[in-house]
Amino acid sequence: MKIAFDAKRFFHNTSGLGNYSRDLVRILSQYYPENEYLLLNKNRSERGKEILERPHVRFVETSKGNLSRQFKMGKDAQKEGAQIFHGLSGELPLKWGKEPIKKIVTIHDLIFMRYPQYYSFFDRKIHLWKFKKAAVSADKIIAISEQTKRDIITYLKVPETKIEVIYQGCHKAFKEQQSAEFIQLTKEKFNLPERFILNVGTIEDRKNLLNIVKGINGTEIPLVVVGRKTNYYKKVEAFIRKNKMEKQVLFLEEVSMDELAVIYKLADIFVYPSFFEGFGIPVIEALFSKTAVITSNVSCLPEAGGEDSVYVDPKSFEDIRAKIKFLWENGSERKRRAEKSFTFVQKFNDEPIAAQLMDLYKKIL
């Protein structure tokens, strides 16, 4: 089988959609090396280099020019003899040749519909147009959660039979055991507290960091935050300054994937009270790290967190505070929840996800 991927995000996104793209190609090529995997883009980067070194994974330089991804990439895949084209980030090419090819698109979320206030009018219109076009053109749509599937049905008016839910996993670093020496170096490099709670993700309104900071105000619980700053950071920083919490909240930047995996493992609790997610990969990362999780009782987060995570009302910093204090003061409860959640999270492992993807490819052929 020859499968072509729109590899723009594979090569050029450092997180989110880039991680999804690289992990998907990595696990398929690992468990199903009998197929050929084509990565189509105008250019390549060093990202995913180790995946491209596999003999059955190949970079295909697509036609140059403006809008070539929309108008030429599909035809380029057909010229290469691909039987399936998989758009990994909610889009598919608009033009195709006459050669037969099946089309699959992964849709991660429709947050721009649910929370329009976070997007410009122009961006909302463009996103909706692209997603609708892809949904109509695709033979099958992959939703990364039941929540996303429901949103696709509601907002894109797609029949349920066209959608397959296939969860995504997380980077292999979170499933590996780093050396004692590397753990110590990471502790020292970032000057980590002896005990701390952790939050990971872009520092933006939707991720709700401010309510975590409000929740620990007046306690002595240290918070470590890893994520790219947006304008919302100023609001969080103002609260921290006003309440003299500068020594209590530590912001980290330029953290490698292996360092991040260590930081997850060192944390007592991972706190993620997001208002809405397509899936919530950081929750999975924490569960694989055997770290107890506190997350929101909304959107897809209970799907990712399982029965043994602790759930909060994201709008209530009092609820967040109560749950943090409960777990912070109960080591045996943290351990019990982390161990049971580690059993639950195995369903997001590489092999079962690769098998589901391959079953879908075979089914549409």
Rank of each mutant, 00 (worst) to 15 (best):
N41I: 07
L88I: 03
Q30M: 15
L301G: 00
L39H: 02
L198F: 06
R22D: 03
K125M: 15
K325M: 12
L88G: 02
S15D: 15
Y167S: 06
I166C: 04
I284K: 00
F342S: 04
K244D: 12
G65D: 07
F276T: 12
V271T: 06
R69K: 11
R26H: 06
M1V: 09
M73S: 04
Y264M: 02
A286G: 08
Y361G: 01
V200W: 01
V312F: 01
T148C: 05
F182G: 05
P222W: 07
E333A: 09
K132T: 14
G278Y: 01
R337I: 00
R9A: 12
R54T: 08
A261I: 07
K187Q: 13
Y155E: 10
A134G: 05
A355E: 15
Y232R: 08
K207Y: 01
G74T: 04
K235L: 08
Y167D: 06
Q78V: 13
M358V: 10
G215I: 14
K242F: 10
F348D: 03
A180N: 11
G81N: 09
D258Q: 13
M245H: 12
S45R: 09
Y272I: 01
R321T: 09
S309P: 02
E339H: 08
G227W: 00
E285K: 01
E99H: 13
E36T: 11
V271F: 02
L287H: 01
V165I: 06
V158K: 01
S15T: 15
L360T: 04
R114F: 05
I126H: 11
E253I: 10
K265Q: 08
N66G: 14
E53T: 11
R195C: 10
S15G: 11
S256I: 08
K244I: 12
K42N: 10
Q356F: 03
V271Y: 00
I281K: 00
K340A: 08
N66E: 15
P193E: 01
F174D: 07
I216R: 03
A77P: 04
Y272V: 03
Y118I: 14
V136E: 15
G169T: 07
K75W: 13
K315C: 14
S289E: 03
I104D: 06
L39V: 11
A261C: 06
T161L: 11
N35Y: 09
P273W: 00
T148P: 00
G201A: 06
G305V: 00
P314W: 01
G215T: 12
L38D: 01
A238C: 14
Q30I: 13
